[in-house]
Amino acid sequence: MDRQKDLVDVNLTSIMEFVLLGFFDIPNLQMFLFVTFFFVYVITLMGNGIIIFITGTDNALQTPMYFFLSNFSFLEICYVSVTLPRMLVNLWTQKRHISLFACATQMSFVFTFGNIECLLLTVMAYDRYVAICNPLQYPLVMNHKVCVQLVAACWITSAPIEIGQTCQIFSLPFCRSNQINHFFCDIPPILKLACGDTFLSEMLLFTIAVVFIMIPFLLIPGSYSQITSTILKLPSARGKAKAFSTCSSHVMVVTLFFGTAVIAYLRPKSKHSSRMDKFLSLFYTLVTPMFNPLIHSLRNKDVLMALRKLVP
């Protein structure tokens, strides 16, 4: 009788919670990974926090470009905080269980913040386009009210869609293994555990990836082709260098984030592998947020000057 009760409990547990395997396949490096990811988290929080602070307090940085950069840095803090703390706990305790509700919540936030990042990077490209291609209209077109509305639209557009997608995925029956071969609740590895028809979920994932990743990814090069054409027509070499320097930081972040996101979610299903999925996910969830402040600081004289003011 007791054995039957234990089996019922095990089956109930397997339905009510998942196991995030993370980097279980390299057991000898668990502590090394913990220390590495801990420092990544601290650097990400400090770097993006400093960007938010200086863009909010330095009068020279009270422009639309730095308003968007500040919001982007805040988003990066939110994005990395959805996955890294739990991953650190899992590495430290080696207890990888996550409840069904916690898994769904994490998935919803990860993809909401990811979609917002795609849209915000597109808005930042549009801001550079207006500033360089239509400088006389820039103060009128990109006034503070418009900037706030654009940022708000990024958040409002993404959240309901991802909540709906998460509800649709977690309405599926999960009667196979409860082990997710990933370090966070990502959609592809979770769909592998569903025993129902996942065609609708896969099509929904692909459609949202096209709308939030592929379309913005195509719009940004379109903006920069116009920007490049305008810059090349400038008579001053110094003006060209300054314009290119202003845009280069954004281009680097776009390339790093979109490059890995496109490969992760728009490559054929047959090309998916757990190891590659985890590797790509590390780039757009951890590496980009960590390098964002560094990229914008080293290639921006205004930010460097504001940073120097913080050092007595």
Rank of each mutant, 00 (worst) to 15 (best):
T55L: 03
I190A: 04
M142L: 14
S99D: 11
Q94K: 11
P221I: 15
H97K: 10
R176E: 11
L88W: 05
F217E: 12
V82E: 13
A153I: 14
F113N: 10
L200G: 00
C247L: 02
K5I: 14
A60Q: 09
T57F: 05
I98P: 02
S73T: 01
F113A: 09
N28C: 04
I116W: 08
M16E: 13
D186Y: 04
L193A: 02
C195K: 01
G47D: 07
G56R: 14
F37P: 10
L45C: 12
F199G: 00
L172Q: 13
F37G: 11
I54T: 01
L304F: 00
S248T: 14
Q168L: 14
I295S: 06
N143V: 02
A194I: 06
D197R: 00
G56D: 11
V123G: 02
V253R: 03
L136M: 06
Y66I: 00
T228A: 08
Q94M: 09
V42I: 15
F34W: 15
F101L: 14
C133Q: 04
A131V: 04
L172F: 03
L193T: 10
V253H: 04
P221D: 15
E202G: 14
Q179H: 12
P235E: 12
D127Q: 13
T207C: 08
C118D: 05
V287K: 03
P27I: 03
E76V: 01
F74N: 02
E117V: 01
L12G: 01
H97N: 08
N28Y: 09
I161N: 02
T246W: 04
C167T: 07
V10D: 07
F113D: 07
L120W: 00
H144M: 12
K192N: 12
H144L: 11
L120C: 04
V80C: 11
I52Y: 06
